[in-house]
Simulated scan of single mutants.
Amino acid sequence: MTRLLDQTYAVARRRFLDAASTAGAEVTSFPHPVSGRGGEELAIDVAVLGSADATDVLLFVSGTHGVEGYAGSALQSWWLDECPGHGPESLRVVLLHAFNPVGFSWVRRVNEDNVDVNRNFVDWADVPRNTGYGDIADLLVPAIWDDETQQMTTAALMEVAGE
């Protein structure tokens, strides 16, 4: 069955949660402290099917790069609709929906801290300091991401780059 990608994070999340419920999955949601582009609640949702005693576990993750969450969410929802009972008894399936819900909602690759989650698995015990980042952080990650702000921050960053 062909599906169109959902147009908003909120619609994609609702479709995933509904499909998980219909499939009989155990769902745990981890709310995010930041709201989405439309003011919606953001969360990482985890749906689990299969026995806790299963010898094999398959993990499906969507939305690590935020904006790519639309495709991953559609695939996860499709799988929940079409395939949840087709695995062996020894298999437990875990679907992690929207690993980067901020990037997903705001249609960005990065999270609320302007971090590409997939590229930044770092040992945080010894992080190098970038003293100049604080000077431009608000330009890179503004509180509001509308057309006016994007034009203003782009112009300001071009000035910084020209220095």
Results as ranks from 00 to 15, higher is better:
M158T: 13
N118M: 14
V127W: 05
D56Q: 13
R109N: 01
P33D: 07
R129N: 11
R3S: 10
D45E: 10
S35R: 05
Q150M: 10
V94K: 15
S35Y: 01
L95W: 09
R108N: 02
L58Q: 12
A98R: 00
M158R: 15
L49H: 07
W124T: 12
H97F: 12
G132F: 13
N130L: 13
W106F: 06
W145T: 12
V93E: 04
A161M: 09
V67L: 07
Q150R: 15
T2E: 15
G85S: 11
W79M: 11
D56F: 14
T149C: 08
L59N: 15
S29K: 06
V67Q: 02
A20Y: 04
H97R: 01
Y70D: 15
D135W: 08
P31Y: 03
A47T: 05
D81T: 14
F16L: 08
V67H: 02
R3V: 13
E41R: 10
G63C: 08
E40V: 04
V94L: 08
M1A: 13
G85P: 11
Y9C: 01
S77A: 15
G85H: 12
T22N: 12
A137E: 05
W145H: 11
V94G: 07
A71I: 13
F60W: 14
D138W: 04
D18F: 07
Q76F: 05
Y133M: 09
I44T: 09
V48S: 10
M158Q: 15
V115R: 00
P101M: 01
F60G: 11
R119T: 09
P142H: 04
V27P: 05
E26D: 11
G36F: 02
A43H: 02
A125T: 15
D45K: 01
D53E: 13
I44N: 04
V34W: 00
H97N: 11
V57P: 03
V27M: 09
D45M: 04
D45I: 03
A143H: 07
L91D: 02
L139N: 03
H65I: 03
T8E: 03
L91I: 07
D6C: 12
A125P: 08
W106Q: 00
V160C: 03
F99T: 02
V48F: 08
V27S: 08
Q76H: 11
A10G: 11
V127Q: 07
V122N: 06
T131K: 06
V34E: 01
D126C: 15
A25P: 12
W124L: 15
N114H: 13
E163I: 12
S77M: 10
V102Q: 00
S62K: 03
G38I: 05
G50A: 09
N118Q: 14
S73W: 02
E89T: 07
F60T: 04
F99I: 07
V11Q: 13
A52S: 13
F99C: 11
P84V: 00
D116I: 00
S51L: 05
L4H: 12
L96E: 03
E82T: 14
T64V: 14
I136K: 00
V141E: 01
N120I: 06
T149D: 08
D45P: 05
V122H: 09
S62F: 05
P128Y: 04
S51F: 06
D146H: 05
D18P: 08
G87P: 09
T55I: 05
P101W: 01
A23G: 12
L49W: 06
V117F: 03
F60N: 11
D18W: 08
